[in-house]
């Protein structure tokens, strides 16, 4: 839906890193390296980013 503000497992604030991550992986950078760069070294935070899909635009269409 929308990236969580904090990591669901450990509580580290991660929301502000999502847009940079998305931009850089779409430009063809390796997602593992981007995650290292962003300082996300626990696997809870990493899986949150690797498995996230932004769907809020779709949901927004159904609400007027």
């Amino acid at each position: 839906m929308i990236i969580p503000v904090r990591c669901i497992s450990c509580g580290k604030p991660v929301g502000h890193l999502w847009e940079e991550y998305k931009e850089r992986t779409e430009d063809g950078e390796d997602s593992g390296e981007v995650l290292d760069d962003l300082g996300l070294d626990r696997y809870c935070c990493r899986s949150l980013f690797l498995t996230h899909t932004d769907l809020i635009h779709r949901a927004a269409k159904f609400k007027k």
Partner: peptide, 28 residues
């Protein structure tokens, strides 16, 4: 974004400005 939040006291700030809170379509 979290940066759009306005604090009413001078000594309290938002730590990260880039946290997405929600997304608005037209007329929202």
């Amino acid at each position: 974004y979290s940066g759009d939040i306005v604090s009413e006291s001078d000594d309290v700030e938002i730590l990260y400005d880039g946290i997405p809170i929600t997304e608005l379509d037209e007329n929202q």
